[in-house]
């Protein structure tokens, strides 16, 4: 498919645009180079509707739809025949079938995508299963970018750990503010990594969306989100060297600290500057995670 496109057969000689680089140093390049560029451009975009070749009657010139053009414009004898006009009737049926199949697929796909992103409505509620079957897993999408309202809270995910020492004693660390650490890593960073910008933020969203207010998991995803969050904690605590050279992390506790983004000064609005906390239960770390082993 790559090797012999129509383009390679259709033209003999004239160069295409885009790679005229090496030609520019030549003595008088402008006119031919640019001239071919333009003719080529119309070649490609307009197909037989376009009027720069000998094939098309003058009347079709500059008519975007090319409506005046008679069907099956006669091809110049020296170029290979292409297009539906060059097909014999049985093959035309094949082309028509392909056209119909593509047209139907395009319409159905766009309809499904529309219903998927639109608010739940009469149609999408009635056919929710059909829509889900079509969209998932590969065409899932969410474009509520900062909408309906942008997030107006900073949610900091924090963790503390219970360290177990070789002599059997235990000690609880202070709270590590992992989101603040992410924030510092993002500051002045022209291309923040997904590990800094998305990992913790989205893991927390995932946890919240799959747990009820009493931190009970809902379904498989609830269980997955707990393991995920716990493993992120193990990774980050290991990086912070929370357990020192000899200890190991026995348990972790996660909490979120939510503060309102202060409203702009010029708005005259006041927002509470009190932080809200959500504290999760202590989680014991499994064998493989007490000394890092993640990431």
């Amino acid at each position: 498919m790559d090797a012999q496109d129509r383009g390679s057969d259709a033209r003999h000689g004239p160069a295409e645009p885009g790679v005229p680089g090496p030609r520019t140093p030549l003595p008088a390049p402008t006119a031919p180079a640019d001239g071919t560029d333009v003719s080529d451009e119309t070649d490609r975009t307009g197909g037989t509707d376009r009027a720069d070749g000998p094939a098309v009657p003058v009347g079709a010139q500059d008519q975007p739809g090319g409506v005046e053009q008679p069907p099956g414009a006669q091809m110049p004898s020296d170029s290979p025949r292409t297009g539906i006009a060059a097909l014999s009737p049985p093959y035309r049926i094949g082309a028509a079938l392909a056209l119909a199949a593509v047209a139907v697929t395009v319409c159905v796909h766009l309809g499904m995508a529309f219903l998927h992103v639109a608010p739940p409505n009469t149609v999408s509620k009635k056919h929710s299963e059909t829509i889900a079957d079509w969209i998932y897993p590969e065409f899932e999408q969410n474009w509520k970018l900062f909408a309906p309202n942008p997030l107006q809270q900073n949610v900091s995910v924090q963790v503390r750990a219970e360290i177990r020492w070789p002599d059997g004693s235990r000690r609880t660390t202070g709270w590590y503010d992992l989101s603040a650490q992410d924030g510092r890593d993002i500051d002045g960073n022209p291309a923040p990594s997904h590990t800094q910008q998305n990992e913790l933020r989205r893991a927390w969203d995932f946890y919240v969306s799959t747990h009820d207010d009493d931190n009970r998991p809902v379904g498989l995803r609830g269980a997955l989100s707990e393991s995920y969050l716990r493993r992120i904690m193990a990774l980050r605590l290991d990086r912070a060297d929370a357990a020192g050279p000899h200890g190991e992390v026995a348990r972790v506790q996660v909490r979120s600290r939510t503060t309102q983004v202060p409203p702009p000064e010029w708005s005259g609005e006041k927002a509470s500057d009190e932080a809200e906390y959500r504290e999760l239960p202590w989680w014991p770390l499994p064998e493989g995670e007490t000394r890092g082993g993640v990431g």
């Binding site: 033209r11 160069a15 006119a31 640019d34 001239g35 071919t36 560029d37 003719s39 720069d52 975007p64």
Partner: peptide, 24 residues
């Protein structure tokens, strides 16, 4: 250098540039 296309539009590019190209 590739040969000029015999039926290609002659002259400077501006003569056949945006004006003709515009519709499509």
């Amino acid at each position: 250098p590739p040969p000029r296309r015999p039926d290609g539009p002659p002259g400077r590019p501006s003569a056949v540039g945006p004006a003709q190209a515009a519709p499509v």
